[in-house]
Design a protein around this nucleic acid. Structure first.
Lengths: 388, 388
DNA sequence: CACTATTTGTTGCGCTTGACCCCAAATCCG
DNA sequence: CGGATTTGGGGTCAAGCGCAACAAATAGTG
């Protein structure tokens, strides 16, 4: 939104945004429900919906056969032809998907690579996928932007990847590269932060305004915050790097790493090692943990849980969230005994702050990052449906 | 603001709020500058200002003799007769002040008590001060509300003091008590969180949207966050309790307290002890620290600084603020060598996150809490100047 | 199968309110 | 003292939402 806030035009845009946002988040809604949710007048909602539909952002469907008295209300749904490209480059593959503003994923490709994907290569892969889809199944779709979920530090102002340790990307202007290759406006975010956004909007954190998300990946621990219902980027966009924190370690014997950095102490690699796996995906790790009754495994799980609990407490004391969502191997770790973790957090955090707190496991599956990436690609359109 | 967002009335209210907010924060402003700052039309600003002045919220003064070409623009200032009562109960005194929406403090009383002030007593003291002022010097003032800065956990929803350890208040409905005694709408907040708000709006954090504030008091360490330019309360309002955090302590010998809680390790009492003072206010402690060259003192200062640095790093990694403001004895501690602290933080925190970071000492003096308390008392009026 | 009650879409009108335009006022500068 | 510049003031315009009256579509009832 430009600086039109406070003007009539601004009101109109905001109202359009509100309506579109509701159907984007909640799915198809009757106009009657939209009037209730927005607080606007029936006639106003009608004209707003008509405008959105004329712009190809929503579609109006026949009323649902609800068994209620009164004239049935047409159902407003996001137009599934409005798409974003979501991209997630990883060490061994680049995943590219077309994500609808209705939440659907009409196309998805995981392109395996036998080398680290370079920035240019990534941009080319995105452009070629876009070309294929545009001339194929998604011929009548409208691509509004690209969103990238990058496993590294991303500067929010210009979408520069400051450092992505596993991709070996350093100061890469990935946003500019992808924009040049595709001609589409592009947004870039840290993968864990986008995971937090996805879980907040569509997953375990739906409707929760103050939330902390922690994700345990193969390479470390990342995360994201939702405060006042909005994702927190910080001054440059680097917020959420829980993995680099140094939590207190109560038992001296619990410390493994010299620096005491969270992601060195609580790590997937250490879990894999103790269960005797060399590699392994998340289900394999979970299965191995469930299968064994070795005390060494139990000790390591306990040790990591204790340290994780302290790290969570620090976040709870400072942010007083109503929800902590754990993903990746942290979910695996916590899921074994969620009650114990909640108990440990309650024991160490301020009593008042832990009262309203719950800890949950991430709800979205492997599409989480794509959904988050699509969300930042849709952000401009959702904030102001009249752009362009 | 009610649910009028999105309607024309809402626009009008928001515009009034914007204008009033600007003159509240920046002091007297010419109408020309207001039009530039709000982006609204000249005529619109003129009518908004006229409405605010008619409601007794602003005053229009003769133009400043600026040496610029063109017709001089009348200066709009907040009406100094619009007052809030700011209250800060402490163990040995209750401070009560009348704070103007223009930032002035036309009346201020520190009422010493020889016992812990009870909630009822506090409410009575406020009511009697209000009565005195209303029939005295501030006869023609308009009191719009009361704000309390309480050294303890305050539930935001209803202004209940969950626990104030030093006052020995526990589950005290102080908001209701003060409202009953004064008849004025009352807001309650944690003292450190209000300090953060005050420093953000008028102190070291002016214009900074992502800020962390830590205050070292006699009793512990509290703080507050500003994210997206707004104070963070969390789900229940308890956010900012840095003192209860457990930061990693790299050197084993540095740990003093069994639990490793920040405010047990980094504490005013330990500093007073090592310099050999029994009691002492902040200047006395600073002077004593400056005067001595004892190695024991240097060791303790170094130890506390190291632990503080780690605690700050944890916040920096997670929140990526552009500014950390330190108050109370933490300011005293840091001021001795601010560069060293910044260096220590930069060494431990993520490099990218510490790039744009500065650490400053709090700028507001002893009125900080009163200013913060007044701010929450003014909040409703500033958000919607048409209330009541 | 009428008839009522209920809910909601539709339509036209009116009101609020900020933008725009033109002119006047006040200042500086040469 | 006159031109340039900036800003205030008042009148008019137009955009957009609320409102009210009416119509339409459903469920329930006897």
């Amino acid at each position: 939104m430009t600086d039109r806030a406070g003007t009539f035009d601004g009101v109109h845009r905001r109202n359009l945004s509100k309506v579109l946002g509701h159907v984007h988040l909640e799915g198809p809604l009757s106009r009657a429900r939209l009037t209730a949710m927005t607080g606007l007048n029936r006639s106003t909602v009608a004209s707003l919906v008509a405008e959105l539909t004329a712009r190809g952002l929503t579609i109006e469907q026949a009323p649902d056969p609800t068994n209620r008295v009164g004239r049935p209300s047409p159902v407003v749904a996001p137009d599934p032809r409005v798409l974003a490209i979501a991209v997630n480059p990883e060490v061994d593959a680049v995943t590219i998907a077309a994500v609808g503003i209705d939440g659907g994923i009409p196309a998805r490709e995981r392109i395996e690579v036998d080398h680290l994907p370079s920035p240019d290569e990534t941009a080319e892969l995105v452009a070629s996928a876009l070309d294929r889809w545009r001339s194929g199944d998604l011929r009548d779709a409208r691509f509004v932007g690209v969103g990238l979920a990058v496993p590294g530090l991303v500067r929010a102002s210009d979408g520069l990847v400051r450092f992505a340790p596993h991709l070996l990307w350093s100061d890469v202007p990935i946003r500019a590269l992808v924009e040049a290759a595709t001609g589409l406006p592009t947004a870039v975010g840290n993968d864990a932060s986008l995971g937090a956004i996805a879980e907040h909007l569509f997953g375990a954190g739906r409707g929760v305004d103050d939330m902390v998300y922690l994700n345990g990946g193969a390479s470390g621990i990342g995360g994201g915050l939702i405060v006042h219902g909005r994702p927190v980027g910080g001054s440059a966009g680097y917020a959420g790097e829980f993995g680099q924190n140094r939590p207190g370690i109560a038992m001296i014997d619990d410390r493994r790493a010299a620096e005491g950095v969270l992601e060195d102490e609580v790590s997937r690699a250490r879990l894999l090692e103790v269960v005797g796996l060399d590699h392994g995906d998340e289900p394999a790790l979970a299965a191995a943990l469930a299968a064994t009754d070795s005390t060494a495994v139990a000790d390591e799980v306990g040790r990591q849980s204790r340290i994780l609990a302290t790290a969570l407490c620090n976040a709870v004391n400072v942010l007083n969230p109503s929800l902590i969502v754990l993903g990746g191997f942290l979910a695996t770790l916590a899921e074994r005994d969620l009650g114990a973790l909640e108990h440990a957090v309650a024991a160490q955090a301020m009593p008042a702050a832990s009262e309203g707190l719950s800890i949950r496991v991430a709800a979205l599956g492997e599409n989480r990052l794509l959904i988050g990436a699509a969300e930042i690609a849709f952000a401009d359109l959702l904030a102001d449906p009249l752009v362009r």
